[in-house]
Nucleic acid binder design. Structure first.
Length: 494
RNA sequence: GGCGCUAUCGUCUAGGGGUUAGGACGGAAGAUUCUCAAUCUUCAAACCCGGGUUCGAUUCCCGGUAGCGCUACCA
């Protein structure tokens, strides 16, 4: 392993992301997409999206939508797009080619009805002896008679026969033909299996590098067999370590919930670029100590050598309550990190649609004023709703008047402070510095500490203790609202 | 069961025959501040086990164990 893969002689690399639309787009698939995309962009290659929808039974439109929705959110795009169901002719042609070379045979054994022998607890049927040896005449006769059959690859199983390939991540791979079962190429209904369709398309689309999940590592031997049988040089392979749940099992929506679905991250208010950054750090390393990386940086630094071989845990919480606790803490941190790196205008624009869902009347100008006050205080875009709520509402929701009481103070002090504020503020210009001076002076006159002066006011205008800086808050809130809320608070103290 | 892949702090990882085994998240403590957040400092925290090779293995080799994958006319 570890030698860089050169672009093919024919030119720039061509890579593909080939999801099968049998479920939503999950984070592991998203990472595969991202790595392919990064590799293509890094090497001036072509990124291809191919829907591997050969399993008609299990394909759903909902799944197709979920995949496109997820990919759209990631915002990376692709250059060419195909659907396997449109290419059946090509697949069958390849099957025919292989069959005519005698490298595949018809298997008239009825399809397995159940899944009883699924995980091979006992018998391993590597091939069907009777069928593999069937004479061509007999085979042709039964086929002509209309007897249904599956087409199986005749895996070379003589002693010493091996299949080999070099994986860019896992290195030299060798497997004895005798350990590879005679897998199916065509189903008895004439439709191609995944293995056949995938290889036929990869060959036809001139895919140069197959970058995919490690769950295909052992399938690759079969694919090499198919490519060679059909007369193609196999592309280069790079398998990615799997993403697994904290319990070590593979990500599953049923077991682990929505946290494995890409759109969940979108809906929780993740920045796509932060999510991409996070995924890149699972199973790949830039080898320096960088963690936060822009898309540009990722494109510049991405390489197959940085991919490691052990499965990576997505460290989410299994049952989970609040968003903050649900997601991998590093994903949250990276999101906050990216948010902090955004220009105020940019962040403000991204926040506005979220705010508008709940407070449609907030103006872009207002949002622009609020944004700098919360940029350092939100981890996800959706946090804007809880971090800046008091700017959006007319009337503060009810809060405990006891909150108004400052440290080492009492209700009387709170009352005093609020009354003082009411007296002083009307004549003050609502800008940071004048407010700062006026309120500190007021505190001094009252003989209370600055903090004791600020807290009652903060709670009066924000409805809670934890909030952005007081002066900038008052500035954005405006004189009228501020005074109204202070007065209201003073009354609560009676 | 068979075949294959993998194994460094709780998690993501760097490293590599001799290192105080590095970084990040998370955790703890502190500094700063009008609260919170941000920021800064400090601390705790790891080489799966057993053999070999070697002057010396966490690193190389073998075995074990564990996890994962494949073993479908799913992908």
């Amino acid at each position: 392993m570890s030698k860089p893969i050169e672009p093919t002689a024919t030119g720039a690399p061509r890579v593909r992301f080939a999801p099968s639309p049998t479920g939503f787009l999950h984070v592991g698939s998203a990472r595969t997409f991202i790595f392919n995309w990064l590799y293509a962009r890094r090497n001036n290659g072509t990124m291809i999206l191919r829907l591997d929808d050969t399993d008609v039974e299990r394909n759903t439109d909902a799944s197709v939508n979920s995949i496109f929705e997820g990919l759209k959110w990631l915002g990376l795009g692709w250059d060419e797009e195909y659907k396997q169901s449109d290419r059946g002719v090509l697949h069958r042609q390849m099957a025919q080619t292989i069959f005519e070379k005698g490298l595949a045979y018809r298997d008239f054994t009825p399809a397995h009805t159940g899944d009883s022998e699924k995980s091979g607890a006992q018998g391993t049927w590597l091939f069907n002896p009777g069928m593999r040896e069937l004479s061509r005449e007999e085979s042709d006769r039964r086929a002509a008679a209309g007897e249904p059959f599956a087409l199986r690859f005749r895996v070379p199983r003589d002693s010493g026969q091996v299949v080999r390939f070099t994986d860019a991540v896992y290195g030299e791979q060798v497997k004895a033909g005798a350990d590879i079962e005679d897998f199916a190429l065509l189903r008895s209904d004439g439709n191609p299996t995944y293995h056949l369709a995938s290889c036929a398309d990869d060959a036809d689309l001139r895919i140069s590098h197959i970058i995919r999940g490690q769950d295909h590592l052992s399938n690759t031997f079969k694919h090499v067999l198919i490519f060679e049988a059909a007369g193609y040089t196999p592309p280069k392979f790079a398998h990615l370590p799997l993403l697994v749940a904290p319990d070590g099992t593979k990500l599953s929506k049923r077991r682990h919930g929505p946290v494995v679905s890409v759109t969940t991250y979108r809906d929780a208010g993740f920045l796509a670029e932060a999510f991409i950054n996070f995924l890149c750090l699972l199973g790949w390393s830039p080898k320096d100590d960088r963690t936060k990386m822009s898309q540009q940086e990722l494109v510049e630094i991405f390489s197959l050598e940085g991919i490691n071989r052990a499965n990576a845990v997505v460290n989410f919480k299994e049952p989970a309550a609040t968003p903050d606790e649900t997601f991998d803490p590093k994903a949250i941190w990276l999101d906050a990190e990216h948010i902090r790196g955004l220009a105020i205008e940019d962040l403000s624009q991204r926040l506005l649609p979220i705010v508008h869902e709940k407070y449609p009347r907030v103006s872009p100008e207002k949002m622009l004023q609020i944004t700098p006050l919360i940029r350092e205080r939100i981890k996800l875009l959706n946090d804007v709703l809880t971090a800046a709520d008091f700017f959006f509402v007319d009337q503060l929701p009810p809060y405990d008047p006891a909150e108004l009481i400052p440290q080492k103070g009492d209700a009387a002090m709170a009352k005093l402070v609020l009354e003082k504020a009411s007296a002083v503020l009307p004549s003050i210009e609502f800008k940071h510095d004048p407010l700062d001076h006026a309120l500190r002076a007021a505190a001094q006159e009252l003989g209370v500490k600055a903090g004791q002066m600020f807290q009652p006011i903060r709670v009066a205008v924000c409805g809670r203790k934890n909030a952005p800086g007081l002066f900038e808050t008052l500035e954005v809130l405006g004189k009228e609202k501020t005074l109204r809320r202070i007065e209201h608070a003073a009354q609560k103290l009676d």
